[in-house]
Amino acid sequence: MRFKDVSLENSHLTTMLERDFNNKFVKIYERGDTSIIFSEHDNISHASLSNPKRDIKDSEIRYAIIRVMKTKINDVEVFKLPNGNIHIKKPLD
């Protein structure tokens, strides 16, 4: 499984997210209909996964944690919203 970094194609969105939410940086990845938005704030890293057509797969969550956030599964908190979106957060050291 491989997600493509589409941050440059969505520079308007990354700029808005950096500015409005005081993020240090924002990256956007896509694979089919699944999107991962990854950002870092002063003290936390955060990833949001969404797919408007189906639920997020466990393998996509693992990919976001290991490949995008570059951390271990045991070091994050994962939240599933009623709409099926997934939020993953990790405090920064």
Rank of each mutant, 00 (worst) to 15 (best):
H46I: 07
S50D: 14
F79G: 00
S59T: 12
S45Q: 15
T15I: 00
R67P: 00
E77P: 00
L81Q: 10
Y29N: 04
H12V: 11
I88T: 03
N22F: 11
V68N: 06
L81F: 14
N85Q: 06
I66R: 05
I86W: 05
R62C: 04
A47Q: 01
S7A: 00
I65A: 11
Y63I: 07
R67F: 05
D75F: 12
L81N: 14
S7L: 00
D42A: 14
N10E: 14
S50R: 01
D20V: 03
E30Y: 02
D75Y: 13
I73Y: 13
L8C: 06
D42M: 11
D58G: 04
T71K: 02
E40L: 04
R19N: 12
I44R: 04
K57M: 10
D55G: 12
K4E: 09
V78A: 11
I86L: 04
N51R: 02
N43W: 12
R54D: 14
L92K: 02
I36F: 10
K70L: 15
E60Y: 03
N85A: 09
V26L: 01
T14K: 01
R19K: 08
I56N: 10
S11A: 08
Y29S: 02
H46V: 13
N22V: 12
I56F: 14
P91H: 07
K57V: 00
F79Q: 09
P82R: 02
A64K: 02
S7E: 05
K27L: 05
N85D: 15
T71L: 02
F3T: 03
L49Y: 09
S11R: 04
S35V: 14
A64Q: 07
T34N: 04
K80H: 10
I88S: 05
H41K: 08
L17D: 11
F25W: 08
L8Q: 11
K4M: 05
D5R: 01
S11Q: 11
V68T: 08
T14W: 02
D33T: 06
H12D: 14
N23T: 05
K90F: 11
V6F: 07
I44E: 14
A47Y: 01
D5Y: 02
R62S: 15
K89H: 04
D42N: 11
K80I: 12
